[in-house]
Amino acid sequence: MMNQTETHLNPSNKVMLEGMKDKKIKSQSASNRRSTILAYVALVVLSVIWLYPIVWIVLHSFRAEFRDGIFVGIVVSNYFPRSFGLDNFIRLFTMTPFIRWFFNTLFVATFSFIFSTVLVLSVAYVMSKLKFKQRKFFLNIAIIIGLFPGFMSIIAIYYILKSLNLTETLFALILVYSAGSGLGFYVAKGFFDIIPNSLIESARLDGATNAKIFTKIILPISKPIIIYTALLSFTGPWMDFIFARVILGETNREIHTVAVGLYYMVHGSQYADGNQFTMFAAGSLIVAIPIVTLFLVMQRYYIEGVTSGAVKG
């Protein structure tokens, strides 16, 4: 089912229009130029607002302030730190199990992204291209189940994991992240829907099995959606807080993920030293750099994915 808007994306048409527009810009009046300048001003102001907290937290991850020889880690009112240093990072690596948290999260993220991607693509393909009796039924069920916010039943999940003797393990977290991931198949289904059926039918005529068609024909041309799915499921564990907190428990700090570990630096009394905002900032920076880079590099796929999903509803 081609989206009707696609028709307007006809490239030659678009180029022509762009050309027309360029001519227009040249003949723009002064008022038009003024509005462009205004737009730039607005964009700069907005960018400052958007970047302000981010720059702030980066600056303060390098803050090294002492009072009578005691390290000051709480939030302070000056925007620029008075003195810079790597103390936060050193303290993070030596006084907390941050390195463990980082690799725990990496471990969980790696596995859950492998499992989730496989599951999501499988389900999406089935729902999009394979015809079988209960298809409609499964679709409806999936929609209804998807409505029940996952963490509402977190206590029950906790006890199920417990009877499997799996609580306080990273494996449990992988299981929870991947198990239901197949339900998030809509975007990928939308992608598969656009692939023309004729492609599949001609392969069938050549005697290919469904498995062959899926792995040899469909997957190779599905790079955008594979990357989109993988990106979301890989970054998920770095961002999730609730499941990690409940399933991994509060006391065994060695097995926490970064989100749980860093949260307690600004909340709660796990740390005898109280609020450790600058250490939190340092940890956040280490977590954010790879994740944000990944996002920005894969931006195109992400945007494609979310927009297609949204417009379909």
């Binding site: 009072r67 009578d68 020889g69 005691i70 390290f71 000051v72 880690g73 709480i74 939030v75 302070v76 009112s77 009394s269 005898a272 030293d273 109280g274 609020n275």
Partner: peptide
């Protein structure tokens, strides 16, 4: 932060607040 900035002069706490209080006021 209240203690450190001098916006509150005192805090009621237990011994478990000691290190944080010391970090705030030196």
């Amino acid at each position: 932060a209240d203690l450190r900035t001098g916006t509150s002069l005192t805090v009621i706490g237990g011994a478990w607040h000691f290190r944080a209080a010391q970090a705030a006021l030196g």
